[in-house]
Design a protein around this nucleic acid. Structure first.
Lengths: 203, 203
DNA sequence: ACAGAATCCGGACCCTAGGTCCGCTTCAAT
DNA sequence: ATTGAAGCGGACCTAGGGTCCGGATTCTGT
């Protein structure tokens, strides 16, 4: 619950300083795992107490950073033009949404990794997952012939999990565009078989 | 490197005791996260030193347990009869493999969770992932019209990630058989769209 | 059976990193 | 200027993974 706004300017200034410092650290450092809270506090020129009061705990800080970076995409999805916006026909919006998620994770590898794997509880309990799943599920539901929207949404999102993306980009050295193409391809396959008209009908 | 066999009977007995105790603890306790190494040592009637000498570190212990439980399935996949064994036609083997993985994770929730999420490095660096991916990829490659076997294998396996399974089974209360059906369905969709008749032919 | 060496045992101990506490300072409202 | 509420910061607490080493146990050669 330590999330209420403060009107005091020192509090606001410090919160901002922490955000900036943390952002820099997470981007610069190799792994997010070896950025300690003490590091962040020091880099921000602030005491640990301040840091924890402002964000509650490590996860809270991560969340704040994540949401800040996610904001533009959220906007584009909620009120933007096609292919991300709500006016897009479902069949085109699903790949667009997943592509957006993938790109976001590619652009924010360390952060996404830290938040998604970040110890304790599963990513599925983190409240930032639910909106995506809900939306995707709703869009999938509008595609005729597609059953199990709920599971399908989960499964598709699973293909963009931060650690998988990290593995593909880092270990397997797959270039961004190729990964996007592969994901698009995969999504197409899932959507393509429409009314699950058997393996035989080539149409 | 602390993995070499010991011929001393006390060492062997203790190793076995630890394995049994850990197995019991991980099964009994709510979350795998709150089974500490000290707990395991105590439950096994053994000192921490012994435990760490035998398994190296926490991950080592998890791995040992995991592999023990996985053994029968590994057997079935490598030298067993269809639909898991190598004699199965690719089109049938892929769903069978994924179903086996899913069932395994359902039967070993806590353990799979602990090992997959288990802090530090991603599941993709854990050497137990690679064989599955390799196999699945190889089988996928034999299905005509299927491209991107590598990515597809990753994506399909991602749908059986321990924390997702845990979420579906635990949070969403989806019964085992339903989940298996949904996964089977999903796999079918991915395989079904054969030669990927284009994205353009749509509207 | 015995000695000596090699190995193992176990729990006290260390260390890191997240999180808390509290006396002091700063802010803002009157 | 006064005052009390809010914030500050770093010393401190705790948990849990991992290490160490004196003493016990087991193996081997004779």
């Amino acid at each position: 619950m330590p999330e209420r706004q403060s009107s005091r300017k020192d509090a606001i200034r410090n919160r901002e300083a922490v955000l900036v410092a943390a952002d820099a650290l997470f981007t610069r450092r190799e792994s997010a795992e070896d950025v300690t809270m003490a590091d962040v506090a020091t880099a921000a020129g602030v005491g640990k107490g301040t840091l924890f009061r402002a964000f509650g705990d490590r996860a809270g800080l991560l969340r704040a950073l994540y949401e800040a970076r996610l904001e533009p995409i959220r906007q584009a999805v909620e009120t933007g033009p096609p292919p991300l916006g709500p006016a897009t026909p479902p069949h085109d919006r699903v790949p667009a949404l997943l592509d957006a998620v993938l790109c976001f994770k590619l652009d924010n590898r360390r952060l996404a990794l830290a938040l998604e794997e970040g110890g304790s509880s599963s990513p599925y309990r983190a409240e930032h997952y639910e909106p995506w799943h809900s939306l995707l599920r709703a869009v999938l539901e509008q595609i005729p012939g597609l059953t199990d929207s709920d599971f399908t949404a989960h499964a598709l999102l699973a293909a963009t999990r931060a650690d998988l993306v990290e593995h593909l980009a880092g270990e397997e050295r797959i270039p961004r565009e190729r990964m996007r193409a592969q994901l698009a391809n995969f999504v197409t396959r899932v959507l393509a078989s429409g009314p699950l008209r058997a393996l035989t009908a080539e149409e």
